[in-house]
Design a protein around this nucleic acid. Structure first.
Lengths: 325, 325
DNA sequence: CTGTTAGCGCCTTCAG
DNA sequence: CTGAAGGCGCTAACAG
């Protein structure tokens, strides 16, 4: 800025004013802008924010696995909203490791992000309390806060699972298997709850031997499916709590050639190209990101006012999609 | 930091030293660390970098569409490498709009990123020249530089397309159709070149009426497929230059019930679950991101030395995968 | 081992 | 309308 000032024959203050679009005589302004162009000068936004006592103009986004389409869609949604406010997104991938999440959040605080959107990796959230984060606001996505009071965006895991299971029951199935991830994950627990609730509402109770809550990838899901179907009175339908479970189950059912009906959480491209019918619980992952960013932006505004208001919670709806009918 | 210093009864300088792990007496250090903990103090990395004259410790990643798995995998790969060096990733999505790319790059320069990885949205790259970017290094991904001299990571578009087409020809097909995106995209041009080269090497020349370079989504690809197959002597096989083309073609072929053989660029999950065989050109998108980050990190080191060295170029290989055999 | 001074690049405040 | 002084939070460089 000094160089620009020297070249234009003014003080640095005048350059600053020109760049801020403050009152400067037209002649001076033109000379300054010319100097800016000639020198290829760009104001240092970092120094600017420091002086203004403002944060960095960036939002931290901490997810468990960016390789998962759900999270990249979420990121895209958050980016779209952030960008309308001139905010950039800083990415952090935790790979589901709570320790890593802790470090990342800490680092982002040190970098003075304006706020953060976090998909929690663990079930302990104490380290995500804005109070212990220098007051930096946080929004949780896909998992509700535990022991802290922050804005949250959830997917209707319970409702989606219940609807999918209810559909299978309505088709006349009386032995609906469950293939899911460990109940330690909020999402897993909710979807299991939905599976159970649909049964109760139909006056039924799922049998333990239809339930597998261990598998966590396609091969283990396929193996679990084989076990389930390889019993005397096997389930005639299967509800899977996520994409990978559904794929594993689909492969195995196809291989075995049974008539097992399949429903699963998470939509996927090409589901309509499969050669057997399938029902999926679909939802808009981008919407999760958009809502999270909106809550955060709103909070950033509020925090400047007297009353920050209470923590809010919003739920992104799901819908059932039937393929291959 | 002043507060911490006051609480520990030392000067700010001593706090700074403790945080830097410099020589400080054990007693003093303990007092300082206690104060840090009690106050929940975190060093302001922004101010620190400003004083040290260093950039922000962040890498800009500018892609055309984060919703595309290719780019999110790329982002994940770049993040993995960056994080080993304590660098964060700042995201920018251009939606393929060159103007937007220009703004984003400019903004990232103003935010003093250490360097940038860019998937160009347009064919003009003048605004990506480090010389006009205040010397901030750039790595291009998936498209070669035009008129500037920067490090680049490419996918073997030509080789992959050639191999896929050669496979179809080796199967005995003598009328292989082409379904691709406009030749204005580097990637599209290269893949077309590969298609052509495979023919030449077999002593053949593709006919114009087998070639469709217009479609850019699933429905238009399906429509183009119908046109191609709806002629007197239709192609008996089809090469598609990307995922969406392949899906569109697959749907239409399946609907028409023809025996058209299909090969396409881009692997996809579940390709093995389809009910007709298909050949895809597969490659590791994460590897593109990793290599780009490595080139960038290496360049960041070099730039501090006397000789920055020449621009480098690396190509990520492709492989052919046959499904449903 | 610890403190003081000065300044990174910018902008608020107060004078001219 | 324009400039000078001072400081955001931090740390090199130089005392002591």
């Amino acid at each position: 800025m000094r160089d620009v000032a020297a070249r234009a024959g003014v003080s640095a203050m005048t350059v600053s004013r020109v760049l801020k679009d403050e009152n400067v005589s037209t002649a001076t302004r033109d000379r300054v802008l010319a100097a800016v162009r000639e020198l290829g000068y760009r104001r240092n936004e970092v120094a600017r924010n420091l002086r203004l006592g403002k944060p960095s103009g960036m939002i931290g986004l901490v997810v468990t696995n960016l390789g998962n389409p759900f999270y990249s869609q979420l990121a895209l949604g958050a980016e779209q909203v952030a960008e309308t406010h001139g905010l950039r997104l800083v990415l952090g991938n935790t790979a589901g490791v709570p320790q890593r999440e802790h470090e990342l959040v800490d680092d982002l605080v040190s970098r003075r992000v304006d706020g953060m959107i976090v998909v929690p990796a663990g079930s302990t959230h104490q380290h995500l309390d804005p109070a212990s984060l220098g007051g930096i606001p946080i929004v949780l996505a896909s998992s509700p806060p535990a022991g802290i009071d922050v804005d949250t965006v959830l997917v209707d895991d319970f409702g989606g699972a219940r609807a999918a299971t209810a559909h299978l029951l309505a088709e006349g199935h009386r032995a609906v298997g469950f293939l899911g991830n460990p109940p330690t994950l909020f999402t897993g627990a909710e979807r299991f709850r939905g599976y159970w609730a649909a049964h109760e509402e139909a006056g039924l109770v799922p049998r333990d031997e239809w339930i597998r809550r261990g598998p966590d990838d396609i091969p283990t899901a396929a193996a679990a499916t084989r076990e389930l179907l390889d019993r005397p009175a096997p389930p005639t339908a299967l509800f899977c709590t996520n994409n990978r479970m559904t794929l594993g189950a689909y492969r195995e059912i196809r291989r075995l050639g049974t008539a097992t009906e399949l429903a699963g959480f998470d939509d996927f491209e090409m589901a309509d190209l499969l050669d057997r019918p399938i029902t999926v619980v679909s939802y808009d992952a981008g919407e999760v990101g958009r809502r999270a960013a909106e809550l955060l932006l709103d909070r950033l505004d509020r925090d400047h006012s007297a009353d920050p208001g209470p923590a809010r919670r919003t739920m992104v709806p799901t819908s059932l999609v039937h393929y291959g009918r």
